[in-house]
């Protein structure tokens, strides 16, 4: 861990100002990812600005009738919030599928968006990594890439985004509220994270001075037909090999509205709007789900160890859509989706 100074931010505007003035400033909230990375010497901020005392913890009604999640509300408080459980159970299940109770008590909603990849090479400063040291090369391509991406990859990077929560936020079409020197703006969730392209060092599209203040969930009802399915190497406390957030609105057996997003397969939470369109207006049958799944992975590419993810993703999509249609998952349940 490098040498740094520490201050508590006195307000949102002040935080933005301080960040703008010095690019070596990093925000810290829950700390669960940045401190981990600082101990690995991957993140090396010369100054930490502690956001925890900013008034961004509230979870409250949004003006459009949706729900506003404060950036500093913890993942646990968010998952168990009555409104989240009632109206956005998909988010509840996705959050509970991630990390551990301890980490969820620390990690914040804003911080979750900034989680960095778990790529082995990104984490190990003894190996080249374009995300950590631009231009040094990607060790995962041609290396050990079992946990790596199959969609939206580039020759520069095949890392995945590790979040579960973000997969649900993508499916729910959340909006991210951001404060910067030029004032406030909103960012569509699908535009928040980016694909690696030829600049894998950038995970997201925010400007350096921008600060996430809240996440807005739109006023839509996916509370009856949803599923978060997470597949991993052990039952809990492990990152997804593949995860699927599926949400449907049904009219009888006909799909009125569909949302489909995947985790563990790409540099960003992978929402597939084409597949959603394929589902809309169709009967909620396995055949329909298979077509959507095939569409999602049609552009997938395996790199050896991770090639199994293509087939796994396909099957997981079908299963998640089936579960969503059947309405078998409940927000009051502790996430045990893949248990027997």
């Amino acid at each position: 861990m490098n040498s740094f100074t520490y201050t508590r931010a006195s307000g949102v505007e002040a935080a933005v100002r301080e960040k703008a003035a010095d690019n070596a400033v990093k925000f810290i909230a829950g700390g669960t990812n940045i401190l981990d990375l600082m101990k690995e010497n991957v993140e090396r901020p010369s100054r930490l600005l502690d956001l925890n005392h900013l008034p961004l913890k509230a979870i409250e009604a949004a003006p459009d009738g949706g729900l506003r999640l404060g950036a500093l509300a913890t993942n646990a408080d968010t998952a168990w919030h009555p409104e989240v459980q009632k109206r956005y159970p998909l988010l509840n299940q996705a959050i509970l599928a991630g990390a551990s109770p301890q980490l969820r008590n620390m990690a914040t909603n804003g911080g979750n968006l900034f989680q960095r990849t778990r790529c082995y090479y990104f984490y190990d400063t003894a190996t080249p990594c374009n995300k950590r040291e631009p231009g040094s090369g990607c060790s995962a391509i041609g290396g050990y890439n079992r946990i790596h991406a199959i969609l939206g990859t580039s020759e520069q990077c095949i890392a995945t985004h590790p979040s579960d929560m973000c997969v649900a936020l993508a499916a729910l079409k959340a909006t991210v509220r951001v404060s910067g020197q030029n004032g406030e703006r909103t960012v569509k969730f699908e535009n928040f994270h980016r694909l690696p392209g030829d600049a894998p060092e950038f995970d997201h599209t925010l400007a350096p001075d921008e600060l996430v203040t809240a996440i807005d969930l739109p006023n839509e009802d996916f509370s009856q037909h949803f599923s978060y399915l997470k597949l991993r190497d052990r039952q809990s406390y492990a990152f997804a090999l593949v995860s699927v957030a599926a949400a449907l609105q049904l009219d009888g057996n006909t799909i009125k509205e569909a949302r489909l997003a995947l985790g563990g397969v790409a540099h960003k939470p992978w929402r597939d709007q084409q597949a959603e369109e394929l589902l809309k207006g169709q009967p909620a049958t396995e055949d329909t789900f298979r077509k959507a799944a095939a569409a999602v992975v049609s552009s997938a590419r395996g790199y050896g160890h991770n090639t199994f993810k293509i087939e796994l993703a396909k099957r997981a999509i079908v299963r998640a859509l089936k579960q969503a249609a059947e309405g078998t998952q409940h927000a009051s349940d502790i996430f045990t989706n893949s248990n027997p």
Binding site: D124, T127, S139, G143
Partner: peptide, 13 residues
């Protein structure tokens, strides 16, 4: 799991 390119265990945590 060893990455034989580096001769290094990569999942060392």
């Amino acid at each position: 799991v060893m990455d034989h390119g580096f001769g290094r265990y990569m999942n060392h945590n």
